[in-house]
Amino acid sequence: MKGLALRVAHLFPKLMNIYGDRGNILCLQRRCQARGIAFEVDGLELGDPLKAKDYDLVFVGGAQDREQRLVAEDLVKVKAKPLREAVKRNVAVLAVCGGYQLMGRFYRTAEGEELPGSKVLDLHTIHPGAQAQRFIGNIVVEWNGTTVVGFENHGGRTFLGDGIQPLGRVVAGFGNNGEDGGEGAVYRNVFGTYLHGSLLPKNPKFADHVIETALRRRHKDFRLSEIDDAVEDAAHAAAVRQATRRSIIR
């Protein structure tokens, strides 16, 4: 594919880089380059404007509490509007963990404070208080006829609005809220999820789905070619085994 490029906006790489989010960017890069697709990534920090038309994919990862607070403010003031515009124009978004929570309408902290979100997705997140169980562990989600596997670690419970679907169904683990069996969210070309691990490297099918979705906006019917995923598939299968074995014991 001559001249093809995936242009990625990485939101807050310095502030939101916990839980191996770097692996997601490395994965996008590697899987593009393996197909001869150029990979361009711009890190956008606090105050940097988001020119959404310049990008095929917006990625935002997870953060510690202090950073998440800084990011939430900037997201609402500086980046939310162009981000919502971009979503309308079918730009793809991948939001993981803290980034996923920030895509919603609001996040209510353990102390009851309500932090506004970017309102990209019709969902909200509530932290039920410092004493509530934190959702920590390996997680397997049924997605698109296959599985997505990773690790979740969140206190907040996320509830989806009516016009929005979960990314998948929880096979082992907690997911959005530990109640309704849903994990993550999909709306237009936006993917939100609690899974890290890192998420993309050992979920090559999902990674390719995100890349294809991002590129199809400008290249209709675009399909990625097959590449050697032997190690990826083995890592995926081993992680699924580990997650389901543990959940039986629990």
Binding site: V231, A234, A239
Partner: peptide, 13 residues
């Protein structure tokens, strides 16, 4: 180790 394949993948990268 228990997560040998995760490490193998990281090293591949």
């Amino acid at each position: 180790g228990v997560r040998a394949w995760d490490m193998a993948l990281r090293l591949k990268y």
